[in-house]
Design a binder for these strands. Structure first.
Length: 290
DNA sequence: CCATGTCAAGGTCAC
DNA sequence: GTGACCTTGACATGG
């Protein structure tokens, strides 16, 4: 099992997701941001490997505005060396990588323009991973909207998926969300497409509520010989249901690990990031998971 | 220098 | 049909 956290490290004093306003766009701003982001990403991954955290989500802001028409920097070319360096470290330290384009990527939108922009955004994510030479990372997305007809929306998702470029397709994974598409829905899409399903245990508690063992078994089966990729969180007390915890809830986490089964990599979607990840790692080691 | 409003992109739900 | 909310840090501006 590998344990990790998404995008941001609060301890080492740099960020790999710096961006700027579209209004302030210039070639120089892009170069400055990308240079800073790649430099910091390398430092974070280095810190992670030294702390035995071997799962990390690279921020979609690593190259700001990459899929926007305004982009006019050939960043894959200009930062070739730095991108390769990251990939080298990832392979050397046996780390697993994911990326998670946000809510604007909707492969099943009714509007063709939205679908086109979504595909462009996915292409960008695949280009980052191509340039790093990381073939087996996941680009994780949700199924999308319902548009008043879930079956139709799922059909549209599948049809668009089939037309995606190969470098996107080989990395795309879908994740159950907390309101619209449950794990069962994602598994149904897997049946028709073979897309791997990332299991989010917190979302499953809010939507679907498939028993944990069954959920993990079924999601695992979608990954073939690769370990299941999982997102984990717990409810922040006193906040709207669905709010991610500020700190890891030790009791909840131990209970989860007691029930969990199989070979999986775990991403802690908890707000204090590497702090909780370090603690989770300690607990998992205590309980004999690694 | 600090406080506050704002940020590429969409969808859903309550009213 | 309109506005709040999702979710989040940090950019950017105005005082």
């Amino acid at each position: 099992m590998r344990i990790g956290y998404p995008c941001i490290n609060r301890r080492i004093g740099c960020t790999a997701n710096s961006t700027f306003r579209l209004n302030s766009y210039s070639k120089e701003r892009v170069r400055l941001a990308v240079s800073n982001n790649l430099d910091c990403l390398f430092k974070i991954l280095k810190w992670n490997s030294e702390n035995d955290l071997r799962f990390f989500r690279i921020s979609s802001d690593i190259v700001p505005f990459a899929s926007h028409p305004v982009m006019d920097v050939r960043w894959t070319h200009e930062f070739k060396k730095e991108l390769k360096l990251v990939g080298h470290l990832v392979r050397q330290e046996n780390m697993r990588i994911s990326m998670h384009p946000d809510q604007f990527v909707l492969l099943n939108a009714l509007d063709k323009g939205i679908v086109q922009r979504s595909i462009a955004e996915l292409r960008y994510h695949a280009e980052v991973l191509d340039a790093m030479g990381i073939e087996d990372a996941a680009i994780q997305i949700h199924v999308g909207g319902m548009y008043g007809n879930k079956a139709g929306a799922m059909d549209r998702f599948i049809n668009t998926y089939r037309r995606l470029p190969a470098n996107v397709k080989k990395r795309l994974a879908i994740e159950n969300d907390e309101r619209l598409y449950s794990l069962a829905d994602c598994l149904a899409i897997h049946e028709r497409t073979k897309i791997p399903v990332i299991f989010d245990s917190f979302h499953n508690e809010l939507n679907g509520r498939m028993p944990l063992k069954e959920a993990m078994n079924k999601a695992s089966a979608t990954w073939g010989r690769m370990p299941l990729m999982m997102d984990y969180s717990s409810q922040e007390k006193g906040k709207r249901p669905g709010t991610h915890a500020e700190h890891i809830d030790n009791g909840h986490f131990r209970k989860f690990l007691k029930e969990a089964k199989g070979d999986f990599d775990l991403m802690l979607e908890i707000k204090d990031k590497e702090k909780s990840a370090v603690q989770a790692l300690r607990i998992a080691k205590e309980m004999g998971w690694l």
